[in-house]
């Protein structure tokens, strides 16, 4: 084990919280059962780290094995960084039959064909997701293990989730992904957030949806404190309708967790102060940002409570329907249209 590998191991151990250390190391399959049992997890971290280092020396492990440990840790902690989503388009026939083994070989081959100094680690997670850790170097430097890129992909789906990717490496990674998954091209879907599972659920519609019904649900039993039954009835009907509408748009139950939504407005002024502004041809430029611990829940609440007027504007429902949270809005013809936005 060389010095850089030792340093990397120390860094990774430092990053893993003490209470997670046991479970993470157990999943790392490079220590024998006896060796693992010899580690005392009640000791301070630095001491565990020292013991672990000597075990690694014993087993003749290298940086490659150490990075696997970080990959395991990252899989356990998917909310550590921001994730961006890309979509693979135009699948070829082989795309449907490719398996992990094929993908692994082909991805590594293509990426290494594009850039010489790169370290790739691929691991399959329990939920069939493929996790890829890439450490980038360039022509003259060794791969930098301190700033790796993470890629998560489910085979046979068009979505790829990326974290920690810089602009320089983007085209390389995109090309390797397109070739390895047998697709024609890849595009940014303008969706980002910290919670990986939420992004996946949103795109794959794995949340509880509500479909329009012709006959509204029967009213629930009201409490006896009625001021006037007709007024109460009327209010309850409205509230029911709003809730139904909000659920149709945003879904029901626990909604996927998105933190932000960003709109770049390049539309004409539509507000009340029409005066000279109404006649103005140029767009009224602005940027609107919604943020909350869960914007879909917040927006649903706004709609169901009446703080947002009915019906829900396509701008907001597009977050769910199109699976995006970045939009550029322009005037095109009479209606409101949304352009795909600049390539990020």
């Amino acid at each position: 084990m060389d010095d850089s590998a030792k340093q990397l191991l120390r860094l990774i151990i430092r990053r893993i919280p003490s209470n997670k250390l046991y479970s993470t190391l157990r999943k790392w399959e490079h220590l024998s059962k006896k060796q693992f049992e010899s580690l005392d997890f009640t000791q301070p971290k630095w001491l565990i780290c020292d013991n672990l280092l000597s075990l690694c020396e014993e087993n003749d492990l290298s940086a490659k094995h150490v990075t696997e440990l970080e990959l395991i840790h990252r899989i356990e902690q998917p909310t550590q960084g921001a994730w961006h989503v890309c979509q693979l388009i135009d699948a070829q026939e082989e795309a449907l039959t490719s398996d992990l083994l094929q993908f692994r070989e082909s991805f590594k081959l293509h990426l290494k064909g594009l850039i010489s100094h790169v370290a790739v680690k691929i691991k399959k997670h329990e939920d069939d997701a493929i996790w890829i850790r890439i450490a980038w170097g360039d022509n003259f430097t060794k791969p930098n293990h301190l700033k790796p890129t993470y890629v998560v992909h489910h085979l046979q789906t068009p979505y790829v989730f990326l974290s920690g990717l810089n602009v320089k490496h983007k085209p390389l990674l995109h090309q390797a992904l397109v070739l390895a998954t047998h697709h024609e091209s890849i595009k940014d879907v303008h969706l980002s957030g910290r919670c990986l599972t939420a992004l996946r659920d949103l795109l794959m519609r794995q949340y509880k949806q509500v479909f329009p019904v012709k006959h509204p649900r029967p009213l629930q039993e009201r409490s006896p404190l009625l001021t006037h039954p007709n007024i109460e009835n009327e209010h309850a009907k409205h509230a029911e309708n709003r809730l139904q509408m909000a659920s149709e748009v945003f879904g029901d139950g626990t909604l996927p967790k998105l933190e932000t939504a960003l709109y770049k407005l390049e539309t004409r002024y539509r507000g009340k102060e029409r005066g000279t502004m109404g006649a103005r041809e140029e767009p009224f430029r602005g940027v609107v940002r919604f943020s909350s611990s869960n914007i879909l829940e917040s927006l649903k609440y706004c709609t169901s409570s009446g703080m947002a007027a009915a019906p829900v504007t396509p701008l907001l429902s597009s977050i769910v329907q199109k699976g995006r949270n970045y939009f550029v809005i322009t005037d095109k013809g009479p209606g409101l249209s949304q352009t795909p936005g600049p390539k990020v």
């Binding site: 602005g286 609107v288 940002r289 919604f290 909350s292 917040s298 927006l299 703080m307």
Partner: peptide
């Protein structure tokens, strides 16, 4: 809202 919603509007 629940959870509270922050809205920022930046105008040119």
């Amino acid at each position: 809202a629940q959870p509270p919603l922050d809205v920022s509007y930046t105008v040119h």
